[in-house]
Amino acid sequence: MRRDPRILLPVLSLALLLAAVFWVQPRAMSYFGINLLFNLAVPIALATIAQMFIIMVEDVDLSTGTFVSFVACVTATFLVETPLLGSAILVGAILVYAALGALIHARQLPAIVVTLGMSFVWGGLAVLILPAPGGAPPDWIRWLMTSKPPLVPMAIVASVLIAAVTHLLVMRSAFGTLLRGVGGNARSVARAGWNVTWLKAAAYGLAGLFGVLAGMSLVGLTTSADANIALRYTLLAIAGVILGGGEFTGGRVSPVGAVIGALTLTLAGSFLSFLKLSPDWQIGAQGAILILVLAARLILRRGRAAA
C-alpha cells in the first residue's frame, strides 16, 4: 500500500517534464525523437541502478563515474581485440567491487572514503588503457544500442527491461528482501543467522555488474571511449536514485523509481537546452528542478502524515 505514493511522484515529474518537452519541441514526439531524447539515458539508468544497490545497503559509491569510464575503456579496446581477456577483466572488476563490499563491512570502513579512493584507481587504470581517446565498440553492442525495434524505440524498451528485471530482483525475490534488510537493520539480519559480509559483497557485486553494463552500453552509443567519458555519472546516479524515491537510509529504494529518476534527469537537461537557456544558468536550473521534486515529495509526505 505505502509503495504506491513513493513511485507516484517520480512518474508524475517525468510525465510533466515530457509534456513540457513535447510542447516546446513537437518534433520530439516521434519514434525517432523519443529515441534521441532517451538513448543516452540508458547508460545513466544502468549507472543509477548500480548506485541504488550501494545506497540500498546504506553506503554511497563515489566511484560510479570513473568505474563506468574504466569499463568503457576496456569495452572499446580489450573486448574488441581479445574478447576473452576483455570479458575476464570485466568479470574481475565485478569481483573487485564485491570484495570491496565485503572489506567495507568486515573492517567497518566508511564506504565514502573507500569508493573515493577507488575512483582514483579506476580513473588511473582507464588512462593507462586508453591514454588518448579512441577505440571502437564490439559490433554486437553497437548493433544492440542502435537497433530499431518495431513500434517502441530501443531506449524505452531498454529502460522498461532494466526497471522490470531489477524490480523483480530487489522487490519481489527473497534475496532482494534480505539485501534491503541489510540497509534497514543489518544487526537483525545478522541475528537471524545471515552472513552480512556476504550480503554486502553481493550488493556491491550487483553494483559492479550494472556499472559494467552502463559502460558497455555507453560505448555502444558513443562508438568510442575516453578515460573521462562518464565522470558526471557519479552525481547523476545519486541524484537519480533520490529523485526516484530512494532514501539514503533504511534500505528504502525503488528500482523502477531509479530508472525513472535517470530518465527525468536526462530529460531535464534537454528541456533546458530546448528553452535556449544560457549554459551558465543550466546547472542551476537543473538543480532547481531537483529541489522542486524533492520539495514536492516532502509536502506530499507531510500531507499524508497529517491525514
Binding site: L36, P43, T222, I229, A230, R232, S270, F274
Partner: peptide, 13 residues
C-alpha cells in the same frame, strides 16, 4: 563528452 553528445542529439531534434 556525454553531456555534449546529448546536446548534439537535442540539436538534431
Amino acid at each position: 563528452a556525454t553531456e555534449q553528445a546529448a546536446q548534439i542529439q537535442n540539436m538534431i531534434l
